[in-house]
Design a protein around this nucleic acid. Sequence first.
DNA 1: CTGTTAGCGCATTCAC
DNA 2: GTGAATGCGCTAACAG
Lengths: 339, 339
Amino acid sequence: MANGATRAVTLSDVASAAGVSISTASKALNDREDVSAATKARVLAVAERMSFTPNVMARGLLAGRTGTVGLLTSDLEGRFMIPILMGAEDAFGAGRINVFLCDARGDAIREQHHLRELLSRRVDGIIVVGRQTDPRPSLGQSIPVPVVYAYAPSDDPRDVSLTPDNVAGGRLAVEHLLACGRTRIAHISGDPAYAAAQDRLEGARAALADAGLELIGAPLLSEWTEQWGRDAGAMLLQQHPDIDAIFCGSDQIARGVLDSARDLGRSVPDDLAVIGYDNWSILVENSRPELTSIDANLQLLGRRAAEKVFEAIDGAETQGGTLQLPVRLVIRGSTIAHR
Amino acid sequence: MANGATRAVTLSDVASAAGVSISTASKALNDREDVSAATKARVLAVAERMSFTPNVMARGLLAGRTGTVGLLTSDLEGRFMIPILMGAEDAFGAGRINVFLCDARGDAIREQHHLRELLSRRVDGIIVVGRQTDPRPSLGQSIPVPVVYAYAPSDDPRDVSLTPDNVAGGRLAVEHLLACGRTRIAHISGDPAYAAAQDRLEGARAALADAGLELIGAPLLSEWTEQWGRDAGAMLLQQHPDIDAIFCGSDQIARGVLDSARDLGRSVPDDLAVIGYDNWSILVENSRPELTSIDANLQLLGRRAAEKVFEAIDGAETQGGTLQLPVRLVIRGSTIAHR
DNA sequence: CTGTTAGCGCATTCAC
DNA sequence: GTGAATGCGCTAACAG
């Protein structure tokens, strides 16, 4: 590696090498009209040969914007941030924006610290990614750049927030089970303190009510783990052997349920349909059978968040509020059998 | 949100508000000696009140370094980059470095594009993260900042590369099985085209040879999937019912093996010990029983990579080559029974 | 068409 | 102790 020994080449290097002034070189490289084709070509050739890359900082200093967006996450270990980040990168990619990633690890102090760092770097905007869909404390209204909250909405309605529509997800899951001819549907989900658990349950109940039905048994809410899925699934199948479908609040829970079902000799999907939530590929694609699930469309959410930031940067008067983004159903073998 | 309406406050704003010159304000804020305690305090107070944050770009323009490192990954979807990134953040955190994240998605074109962007931003160094341990093409020797390759080493020995020691991992896994009293050990792993598969196998064979033993049956190498683990596990247990341990090349494969073992009435760990690889928490902590696994210490690897970049930035004459980092064994219920 | 000038925000000489 | 001047690399006004 060339240990920084070779200083980066500057515009002035290129200019002198091409035998023109700095400003002419600048114009040539930025493809301005007021420069002859000959010199333009010559400058470009020299720049190419010297592998000149313009110093974005210097440029940003002039322009007042850095072409940089901060992604402040509390979910670095997690599966939510990654697709959101990818979506944001997609949206930014075309526009020559780069992403500063900061991991607050769910700690408010660290978050403040990183926020200051990002502002210090004059990011043009900030996307705040949480790991739950419960509202989180706002970063406040006094931040000099646009802020968009993704996944975890802000608790301040003046902020712009994007979050997946969990109620619609719950509804979608149950409607699919109904469409598969199931009528005796139970629900196992995670920590009832999570908005996600409550919202999905609400959506499920609404869909059932529309069909003149109710959940079989009380919804079983405890942990977002496979273990809980196994335990709850076993209990449920013994107490209510006549159920024909289980809507699970997460893919992990669903995998536990699949395990218990097999242990108890229930065949999925013929005898029992199982649907998960999150569409986490490592889980849904490796289970036996593969798992039907609700996909929160996080990549789209990331893209939308990036677009919102863009709009605000460009001066659009974005109005606050939480936008619920649509989710989608991904059907696999755990609800519809292969023939 | 304050849509960028409020321009960021500059040093000159602070200076005039405090009634001092720009340079005095600068000295006060940077805690230089040559300024009276009184004015220093006053400037600091004013800066605090106006929530002044120094423009890192302007500062970087002077200093010639940006306090920024690029992380060029081909594994954004993946589980390898996250812990590496976390480790790097840990190492950088203290030093006020921020990380630019770029996802090349395994595409060489995109990688070149991002590389240019990073250089354009005058990052002080670059960490390149791959998704396999097979050597990857070098970015070349003509990059004006230090480059460190993490996980996937560079194919150019002049580059600095850090990669987990898979041979040691294979050895460690088998030594653990031997220590548990197992002697009839088989191996199921992923795609034989991966260096990881070959290296782990090599380590396993070495450990067995040291004990005067050999693998039972031929190693079964095909895919890094749970499905393959199930299929291979079932076949193996039927062909060689007397094996007492299976070393699996990934946690996914191990989970498949656990599944098959249960189907065939083999009890884990009493009758059959199973060990995985990667220590991917979502998999190892949710299996039944929980899965003993080899942890590649990726967070440490990320930290080391960051430190290497640091050293090189500070001018240390780092020498090239691939450094194999130690891995560790994490023991759970799939190899040692609870009492 | 090309070159000269000014200035983005800041740290750092150097006079005062 | 403090402030005026210089320059980091670049672009956008001008003037030639």
